[in-house]
């Protein structure tokens, strides 16, 4: 059975049930807010992995697509009064298109060159966002989005549902024939071309999917914050996502998503410690890169399953 592993399915459904039960246990909007943020990070890290983990093309500008989605939804709402729900539909289209456009010239580049090109692309977007403040609101961002759900817990359920479905969809994609082809592309492009595979079309399409899910997460996040801020376009966010993917284990989709969920929660918890937050991030990354090849989450889960079996 290549598609469904029973243990994996049961455990992920149990995790979903646990997360779905949270609003029943607490009505604390702060807790729900943290979870919404963490789920957005999970979508971002999972979508990063879709392209970068499978093909080994490490995207250092994922924030470009997150920010584009957030700003698209925010702009439609604040400028034209279009409901946030439509924004959540449009955002992935905008980000996906951007992904294809940026992928077209950059996906030919190898290793570090692709990383730099995407990093620079997002830096250009970030700088433009600040320069074109008349449209984007500059440092302040676009605020005053009208909430789409009556209560925080309603919105939490929306984000949880979309998040779970997105990550499951991406995982299934990674397990499908297309995922296999992408891993082959990551290993050796020339062999794939000789095997009649249109390598460029595969990479660009996947980049568009990856960007679209990032934009979806961006719109959901803006809908929670009721603001699209320039931080969502920053290199800092891109790098945070790469760190999460490394910790989770690249190419597994669920690994980066789970790592993102936990790291976002830990960081939120560490907010009390203020300035030590990023230091902890840096140290975790240092340890992960130095000591592991496949991160923590995926190897740990395999080990656990081995013990249970």
């Amino acid at each position: 059975m290549r598609f469904f592993n029973r243990t994996d399915s049961v455990v992920s459904l149990a995790a979903l049930a646990l997360l779905a039960a949270v609003p029943l246990l607490t009505s604390d909007n702060y807790v729900l807010g943290i979870l919404i943020t963490a789920i957005c990070y999970a979508i971002w890290a999972g979508s990063w992995d879709l392209l970068s983990g499978l093909t080994g093309r490490e995207n250092f500008g994922h924030s470009l697509f997150i920010g584009a989605g957030a700003y698209a939804a925010a702009y439609l709402n604040t400028a034209y009064g279009i409901d946030l729900g439509w924004g959540i539909v449009v955002a992935p289209l905008v980000s996906g298109t951007l992904g294809a456009l940026i992928g077209l010239p950059t996906l030919r580049l190898q290793g570090p060159y692709f990383a730099l090109a995407t990093l620079v692309a997002s830096a250009i977007a970030h700088t433009l966002c600040l320069l074109l403040w008349r449209v984007t609101g500059g440092e302040e961002g676009l605020s005053g989005i009208l909430p789409m759900a009556g209560s925080q817990s309603d919105y939490y359920y929306l984000v949880l549902t979309i998040g779970f479905v997105s990550i499951a969809a991406m995982k299934l994609f990674a397990l499908s024939d297309a995922g296999l082809v992408l891993r082959a592309i990551g290993s050796d492009e020339a062999i794939c071309r000789a095997a009649a595979i249109d390598v460029d079309a595969y990479k660009i399409t996947t980049f568009a999917f990856s960007a679209a899910f990032a934009g979806l997460g961006g719109a959901l996040f803006a809908g929670y914050q009721l603001t699209a801020a320039p931080d969502l376009l920053s290199s800092g966010l891109s790098i945070t996502i790469v760190v999460m993917a490394y910790v989770g284990g690249m190419g597994t989709i669920y690994g980066p998503a789970v790592a993102a969920l936990f790291l976002a929660l830990i960081v939120e918890y560490l907010r009390g410690f203020g300035e030590y937050r990023l230091l902890v991030y840096g140290l975790i990354l240092l340890v992960v890169v130095r000591l592991t090849r496949h991160g923590f989450v995926d190897p740990f889960w395999r080990w656990l399953k081995g013990r249970l079996a």
Partner: peptide, 27 residues
Amino acid sequence: EPLRARPMAVLMSTLALSIVAEQTLLI
């Protein structure tokens, strides 16, 4: 040196170092 065989790992390792250094200066 220990990561030389893996270029992306070196990139990540030096990135991590720069975060740690910056935060240490900040603190």
